[in-house]
Design a protein around this nucleic acid. Structure first.
Lengths: 234, 234
DNA sequence: TGTACATCAGTGAACGCGCGTTCACTGATGTAC
DNA sequence: TGTACATCAGTGAACGCGCGTTCACTGATGTAC
């Protein structure tokens, strides 16, 4: 993003940011369903039609928020893993740290989480733009498994895969080569990802209400158990 | 439900059923967000205000659909498990059969699935009425684990729980007694449940698009791996 | 069996609301000469 | 440095839409005597 020179460009950047911030606030307060262009415009203090100078439609505004949410969560996961690595943690501890950070972010941003991992918004098709950011969390998990494999500490599966199931696309994106792959790293990454998603979704969407006396401890236990199926030792 | 005697009572039953069916169709076609009393009334062929003779508000109609969805899914899970039992399947196979049935139902009823396991509807609080039906699936899973424990085939956990985390409520509902419980059956049941939920959610909400060449096979592998962490052998 | 009254189902109009989006406009900012 | 024109941001009014819910009403069904 080149530094804006003219007054107009400066204003455009600032107002775009103000609109996004208002939208973020609206989303955090009332959820995606209640997010309307008019409400955002009201909060920014401009007339609703003026927003169209910045976002061509409500869907584009929504897309921007989705990308923001994926980006924020991706960064959180990457930072948590990097910090664990810096602290000398092994793959199992890295997975635990990443999973905890994922959950923490989700609990702090429930509406953002629901926006990206909840029910698809009807009539809304995620543009390619979001896919790249959406992949970041699972790439962190794949990286952990890759490192474990490279270090030779990755356990065998209770039952091996009959054949590779991941698309070439995923293997390439995850940077998995024949060298460090026992043949099922992408599949293991996805199991970690979906288990993490399931535990977090269940908690946030209210499916654990009344079932557990200590959700924190259960989450940790769950993540630890799940580590085992991917061959990680916590 | 006593047999209706008067013409009025007969009509009331039939029309209530017709409204629910129209609502179900509307939900299946366009999702919960698009489900409006007026649309339902239109489909049934009556004026919108007439629906108020049957459901006091839109939320009550929504609640009825939620209960229906939980009930349908609960029945599907129970039937799948019962059928596996009848076929002489052990706990591991019963879990696999139940998980597959869960996924199949979800894929056939994506909007119903999203209604109960997707983003919470803002401003809507699930009444007690739904809770009982909602518990059925996890109770099936708990039952499988209970039988495995009773048969002595339940494996030990890679890492035991530090202390029980389930509420007394859950233990009681799941019919788990000190006899057949190694001390962590409810917690294991919830891990099965959330993993299953995560895999299904990820697939249905589009988070696996482009990552797998064969989602069916991956789901089976995932479920099989997850079985191991709960101590089941598939 | 017949009559008088009470209950209920469905109608049609209306209320007030908020939404996304368009459009002609005014005035400020930027640019080319 | 100054002028003439082009670009852009924001305004305010309007369009058409669908929503949940209320209300007074008509006519049919049910019930008590």
């Amino acid at each position: 993003m080149p530094a804006p020179r003219t007054a107009r460009a400066v204003a455009r950047r600032e107002i775009t940011a103000a609109i996004l911030e208002a939208a973020r606030a609206e989303l955090a307060a009332n959820g995606a369903a209640a997010l309307s262009l008019r409400a955002v415009a009201r909060e920014v203090g401009m007339v609703s039609s003026a927003v169209y100078r910045y976002f061509p439609s409500r869907d584009d505004l929504l897309t921007a928020l989705i990308v923001e949410a994926y980006t924020a969560l991706g960064e959180v996961a990457e930072r948590a893993d990097a910090k664990a690595v810096k602290g000398g943690a092994g793959p199992g501890q890295r997975w635990l740290a990443t999973a905890r950070a994922f959950r923490r972010w989700a609990k702090r941003h429930p509406h953002e989480f629901a926006l990206i991992y909840g029910s698809p918004v009807p009539g809304y098709a995620a543009p390619q733009e979001t896919v790249q950011q959406a992949a970041r969390v699972v790439l962190v998990l794949a990286g952990i498994l890759r490192d474990a494999a490279a270090a030779g500490t990755l356990g065998a599966l209770s039952r091996p895969l009959p054949r590779p199931l991941a698309s070439a696309d995923l293997r390439a994106t995850a940077g998995i080569t024949d060298d460090d792959d026992p043949g099922d790293l992408p599949e293991r990454s996805l199991v970690l990802m979906t288990s993490l998603l399931g535990a977090t979704t269940a908690e946030l969407f209210g499916h654990l209400v009344g079932t557990l006396s200590d959700v924190d401890a259960w989450f940790d236990a769950s993540v630890t158990w799940v580590a085992g199926i991917a061959g990680l030792t916590v």
